[in-house]
Amino acid sequence: MIWDWHFAGKILPDLLRGLVVTVEATLLGYAVALVLGLLWAVLRRSPSRVVNQVVRWVVEFIRSTPLLVQLFFLFFALPSIGLTFSALVTGVIGLGVHYSSYTSEVYRAGIADVPAGQWEATTALNLPRRRVWFGVVLPQAVRKVIPTLGNYLIAMFKDSPLLLAITVPEMLHSAYDVGAKSLRFLEPMTIVGVLFVIVSVLSSLLLRRLEFRYGNN
């Protein structure tokens, strides 16, 4: 069996449609991860020891168990408690929650990096808690960690094929479908691999520019 360019051209549109779903799931999941991670990080600073420790272990648990298992868990367990989502939404939630455990660590480092003087100043000015976080601490903390957060976008993109296990029609899923129908796996699998590398390398170039912009202040 040798490489067939004609066949490769014919299946490309199908695979690109899969790529759109992959990108969609990644971006939506990333949004969830950014928001939820921030929530974890802020809760970790809570003065209550109980909240603090509970959040710490929950995040540790999410981080040290496989995404695939979590996806299955959500896919099968959510309906049994009455929440029914489409496969894509379940996948987005899964990706988002899993990666929130990573982003929370990034935010935590950023928050820890805010000089103590800034905190003291908010106390001296008697700012309400909401303004302490949204007006003073987070703008400084988040700016610094933007490049690091960007790395997780790429990591997440590369974990998105796992969604095929819960029947989301993403790129690898379409490749597998094409392969199963035509019994030719070489072209679809190779194209998917190449597309993955192209998108990852392009986005890492983009990130490098982002790093350049935010890195030095």
């Binding site: 590369k158 998105s160 699998m189 691999g193 993955f196 990852s200």
Partner: peptide, 17 residues
Amino acid sequence: GTATLVLMYWLFYALPL
């Protein structure tokens, strides 16, 4: 740049061909 799963599928499904 490649996802582990894609690599695994490639090794498992494409290379035998």
